[in-house]
Amino acid sequence: MKKFFLLIIAIFAFGTVFSQNETKALFKLPSVNLKTINGEPFNTKDISNDGKPVLITFWATWCKPCMKEHDAINDVYEEWVDETGVKLYAISIDNARSSNRVMPTVNGRGWEFTVLLDQNGDFKRAMNVNVPPHTFVVNGKGEVVWQHVGYLDGDEEEYIEIVEKVEKGEPLN
């Protein structure tokens, strides 16, 4: 009886470790101090979505493909949230020159997602982002599982496919 229990525990433990490998977490989100769009402090450890997947995008007001990417996502964001529960954090790397212009830009364009400010590129460096746009998919445990550089029209459809897989716990290939 005891052995049986131990075996079950062992299988369970092994299974946990194994399934962890299967999601292929690339790395955990680093902890970096950012600011909210209102200037309040925000640590990236607090990026969360009740165990549901999170999308993180790096962008700037002067970056043409980034604006295009976020406009495209905004058109379908409501559907995305309804279908997968995903939450998007759009990290603006605008520096002091344009960071105070981020809030009126975001609201003026009617973007519905959460925007954070990374004025001196601290989070950008910690996430190894070369140039925007750069997009990450984070699983419910705060681990980055997928990333993508650049934006071409239609790329957002790939993002949501990945998010759907992560949400269902399917492996990514």
Binding site: N100, R101, M103, P104, T105, V106, N107, G108, R109, G110
Partner: peptide, 12 residues
């Protein structure tokens, strides 16, 4: 800087 914004309008 001074800004005002609501959904659909941003002033800076």
């Amino acid at each position: 800087t001074l800004s005002y914004s609501r959904k659909g309008l941003g002033l800076f």
